[in-house]
């Protein structure tokens, strides 16, 4: 059985693509066959973060328009044999994405016995975001600890329960996990950001994982290595915890407290 997971948020720049890359990688590390699809037509980000931008010959839109087969367009990850990337098109506009086309690609991935298909949604609630969530079996809703992001995620949760295939069938919509990214313990402690309790209360859902704000994320993205590969990064470890929790493992939340500055840093600043 193939499970289709959409990574979505409403608001832009909250960490969807970063999360998609690490989630897909984490699933493949557990020997599952995984495809990760970039629905952000016109921008192309996922292939950069996955470090395969030079190997993109055909993309998602080429497959939808039958200009290439799915096999030709799927790029195998350099590090993990069971991980494949389907890049977005940089040259086409969003209208090139059609519901039938998306469904056909997903059906073919099902036939090819992929265990998971991760759909990296664009920001907003327009066509691309709609199609990324429409066929999903599960959703990961990425949220930053700030009011506007939580509000947008609430909106997305509403759409997941109504404007999706599961929603239209009336079986309760797409079950959703909330993931808080770019979590800044200092700012939360100072009251500049929403606390995890605030977020859970506003959304009425419990949080599956919390990814701290850390420079290693940007470094990893620039190197084209999903941060989950980096065992020295708190963000990477937090993503690894998150994947484990998806499989029912009990991993306590970590990296939530304000890190104590070392004596040296306190004396010399930093």
């Amino acid at each position: 059985m193939t499970e289709i997971i959409v990574v979505t948020s409403g608001k832009g720049g909250v960490g969807k693509t970063t999360t998609s890359a690490s989630l897909a990688t984490g699933l493949a590390q557990r020997n599952h066959k995984v495809a990760v699809i970039d629905f952000d037509i016109g921008l192309r980000n996922l292939d950069l973060i996955m470090g395969c931008e030079r190997r993109v010959v055909y993309d998602f839109i080429n497959v939808i328009h039958k200009e290439a087969t799915l096999k030709q367009a799927l790029i195998r990850d350099k590090r993990l044999d069971s991980l494949y990337i389907l890049a977005a098109s940089q040259t086409r506009d969003k209208e090139a994405l059609t519901q039938d086309g998306v469904e056909q690609v997903l059906d073919e991935l099902r036939q090819d016995e992929f265990d998971y298909v991760i759909c990296d949604s664009p920001a907003g609630i327009e066509r691309g975001a709609h199609l990324a969530m429409y066929f999903a079996d599960r959703a990961v809703v990425v949220v930053n600890p700030e009011v506007s992001s939580v509000r947008d995620s609430d909106r997305i949760l509403g759409l997941l329960s109504s404007k999706t295939r599961h929603g239209e069938r009336g079986d309760g919509g797409v079950p959703a996990h909330v993931v808080v990214t770019r979590y800044h313990p200092e700012k939360v402690a100072e009251g500049d950001m929403l606390s995890l309790e605030d977020i859970e209360e506003i959304l009425g859902l419990s949080i599956l994982g919390v990814i701290p704000e850390h420079d290693s994320v940007l470094t990893s993205s620039n190197q084209g290595i999903p941060v989950i590969h980096n065992p020295d990064s708190h963000a990477g470890l937090a993503y690894e915890d998150l994947v484990a929790r998806l499989f029912g493992e009990d991993r306590p939340m970590r990296f939530l407290d304000v890190p104590r500055k070392s004596l040296l840093k306190r004396v010399f600043g930093g």
Binding site: R151, D154, R155, G158, L159, S161, G172, I202, L203, G204
Partner: peptide, 27 residues
């Protein structure tokens, strides 16, 4: 019984409405 999310609208025509979950900002 489900939360009413931001951007959603619920209308009980000709009757009363009982919501046993929260109603979000913007709903």
């Amino acid at each position: 019984a489900q939360p009413v999310r931001s951007g959603q609208q619920l209308y009980a025509r000709d009757t009363d409405l009982v919501v046993t979950a929260h109603v979000a900002n913007g709903a």
